[in-house]
Amino acid sequence: MFYSPGDYETLNGFIYSVTGKIPGEGEVIYYDNLEIKILKASPQTVEEVLIKIRPIKKEKSKLN
């Protein structure tokens, strides 16, 4: 699931809802199949990120 409903309307709001804080530069956040690296941030806001979409790992079937 990419979108998680919440009380936010911006990427900053989403990041804050996932982490509970404003992350610092260089921090990496993993959410489902997303890898969000904080490239530039101030104490009040995240200013630049790099988002990578990682492959979703499929669970092996118990029938095989």
Rank of each mutant, 00 (worst) to 15 (best):
F2Q: 02
E59F: 09
G26K: 10
S4Q: 08
I29G: 01
D32N: 15
S61H: 05
G6I: 03
P55F: 01
G13H: 03
V49S: 07
Y8M: 00
K60E: 11
G6M: 01
V28G: 02
I15F: 08
L63G: 02
T19S: 10
F14H: 04
S42H: 01
Y3F: 07
D32R: 14
E25Q: 15
Y31M: 08
E35M: 12
T19G: 06
L11T: 06
K21N: 13
V49I: 15
G6C: 02
M1K: 02
S42I: 00
E9A: 11
Y31I: 12
L34V: 06
F2S: 01
K58Q: 09
E48R: 13
L34A: 09
I56L: 13
K57W: 04
I15Y: 09
K60S: 09
N12C: 04
L11W: 06
I36G: 03
V28F: 05
N12A: 09
R54G: 00
T10S: 15
P55V: 03
Y8C: 00
M1H: 04
Y8K: 01
E47S: 08
I29Q: 00
K40D: 14
K37W: 00
K52H: 09
I22H: 12
V46I: 14
V46P: 13
E35N: 08
Y3I: 04
S4N: 01
E27A: 12
K60H: 06
M1D: 03
S4G: 01
E9Q: 11
T10G: 06
K21C: 14
E9T: 12
I53G: 04
T10Y: 03
K60T: 05
Y3V: 02
V49R: 07
F2K: 02
E35K: 15
I22T: 13
Y3S: 01
Y16A: 11
V49P: 03
V49M: 08
G24M: 09
E47V: 00
L34Q: 15
Y8F: 08
L39N: 13
M1W: 00
M1C: 02
G6P: 05
I51W: 07
I51N: 02
E59I: 09
L50A: 06
K60Y: 05
F14P: 05
Y30F: 13
Y16W: 08
E25T: 15
V49N: 09
K37V: 04
D7G: 00
K37P: 00
P43Q: 03
N64D: 13
I56C: 02
G6H: 01
E27W: 07
T10W: 06
P43Y: 03
I56R: 12
K60L: 11
K60A: 10
N64Y: 08
S42R: 02
I51E: 00
E25A: 14
Y30M: 06
N12E: 11
L11G: 05
G24D: 14
L34C: 07
I38E: 12
L34G: 06
S17M: 11
